[in-house]
């Protein structure tokens, strides 16, 4: 569960202090210095190797050699960006990659930490189904008290999770009316409740169109009454009607 968070913390522990004694900066070649200054100037945004080449006009082989040397001297490090995992980005070791690069709390090594997110989602759904109607603060409070996670969540993080659950149609966002089931919540306050009235988790209702082959058919635009794909020769139909 908290594996994801630990991993990202592990990443930050990789950051090492520069040795104070002999500063390696002094022993840099001309090309290395140009590159280092460029990478440092980008701060926490990091820079793609192709952009370095474009901005400095250093030939490929020299560039690669210089980057290796800078890395060996622990002046720069490679970072994975969530946008383009294949593109090599570098950042000066004194900086931590920005949220735009790492994707923020929900990412580990440039990938969405789906296992962790799904665990947290399930936990939130459980809270909402147990308490019937809750506000965001109440969810956060319950999570904190439960000690199920060894990381602290911000209100914004929980809000992101809850919003995704609303989009999943697992829970509903409602405004308190101050009456009946809402009587402990101020009028107008946004709160969350179970999507199905019985309190049982239900899959979204399958509509009339989605329950027949044509509703999900990828070839429907090619299907005509007398064409190669037609309702009388359709394989999806044959499969559907074979019970």
């Amino acid at each position: 569960m908290s594996a994801g968070m630990n991993r990202s913390q592990g990443l930050s522990s990789l950051k090492r202090k520069q040795p104070d004694s002999k500063s390696p900066i002094e022993s840099l070649t001309e090309h290395e210095r140009i590159l280092y200054n460029l990478i440092r100037s980008k701060q926490d945004m990091a820079i793609w190797t192709r952009d370095m080449k474009r901005e400095t006009n250093i030939p490929d082989n020299v560039l690669n050699k210089s980057l290796k040397s800078l890395q060996a001297k622990k002046l720069i490090k490679e970072v994975v960006t969530i946008q383009n995992k294949g593109r090599k980005h570098y950042i000066a070791t004194e900086f931590e990659p920005s949220k735009e690069i790492t994707g923020g709390a929900w990412y580990v090594e440039g990938s969405l930490d789906t296992e962790f997110i799904n665990f947290l989602k399930k936990h939130c759904v459980k809270i909402i189904y147990e308490q019937k109607i809750v506000t965001l603060e109440e969810i956060l409070d319950t999570i904190r008290r439960s000690r199920a996670f060894n990381v602290e969540f911000t209100t914004q993080q929980i809000e992101e999770i809850v919003n995704a659950l609303v989009l999943d149609n697992e829970i509903l966002e409602v405004k308190s009316t101050g009456m009946g089931e809402f009587n402990s919540i101020p009028i107008g306050k946004v709160c969350y409740r179970c999507a199905s009235k019985a309190g049982l988790k239900a899959e979204p209702k399958i509509g009339a169109m989605a329950s027949i082959p044509c509703g999900v058919c990828p070839q429907i635009s090619l299907c005509t009454p007398d064409g190669i794909i037609s309702p009388t020769t359709c394989v999806y139909y044959t499969k559907w009607l074979d019970f």
């Binding site: 149609n169 979204p204 169109m209 989605a210 999900v216 990828p218």
Partner: peptide
């Protein structure tokens, strides 16, 4: 909305369903 969303879910999957609803 329910009818169209249910088509999206069946045809394109859960992630698409969330995106479409958003």
């Amino acid at each position: 909305n329910d009818e169209v969303e249910s088509i999206v879910l069946k045809r394109y999957g859960r992630d698409a369903y969330r995106i479409f609803r958003l």
